[in-house]
């Protein structure tokens, strides 16, 4: 169970961010009802937050023996952990969410599918457009027409 793989760029920073967040939650849990009684509403959240803090401290302690990343700089982080394709896909997902209600599902999802396929297969727009259209039609027929799932309609239609 010991960690023997080399640390990835940003791994320790991620654990520290989680630790800071856990400490914040511990304080918030304390603020629910303090030490009013051992069965008050804040006790179990406090226990859970404390377990988070202790387990992360243990993980940090254990990981100290793991070989550090060969290149731990920001460039390595952006290359290995958040490569451009990931950031661009995330940007497309955010665009999909923002346009979901104003543009409606068919336009938002269709645009997303086309752009994402185009990005991930690096070009071939005609193929991307055909695949996006077929996939969108299949999703719409199965979920909207067969399963009767409510999908966002365009506000301007």
């Amino acid at each position: 169970m010991n960690q023997t793989r080399p640390r990835l760029p940003g791994e320790r920073a991620f654990t520290l961010v989680l630790l800071a967040f856990s400490l914040f939650l511990l304080v918030q849990a304390f603020r629910i009802s303090g030490f009013e009684s051992v069965s008050s509403p804040g006790v179990f959240p406090m226990i859970a937050a404390l377990v988070m803090v202790v387990s992360l401290a243990a993980a940090l302690f254990r990981d100290r023996a793991a070989p550090p990343p060969s290149d731990g700089g920001p460039a390595a982080f952006f290359r290995e952990v958040t490569p451009p394709v990931l950031l661009l896909t995330l940007a497309l997902i955010v665009a999909l969410m923002l346009t979901l209600e104003p543009a409606g599902f068919p336009f938002a999802a269709g645009g997303f599918l086309f752009a994402a396929i185009l990005l991930l297969q690096r070009g071939r727009p005609v193929r991307a457009a055909i695949v996006a259209a077929v996939a969108l039609t299949a999703i719409y027929v199965v979920f909207r027409l067969v399963f009767q799932v409510v999908l966002p309609e365009a506000e301007w239609l």
């Binding site: 969410m97 599918l113 991930l120 297969q121 996939a135 799932v149």
Partner: peptide
């Protein structure tokens, strides 16, 4: 089926599935 098609499909299905719970963005 290439991942370039599969991944966007998973994301759209995830969005549709989550939205369908209470029609909330």
């Amino acid at each position: 089926c290439p991942r370039a098609i599969l991944i966007p499909l998973i994301i759209v299905l995830s969005v549709v599935g989550t939205y369908a719970i209470q029609n909330s963005v």
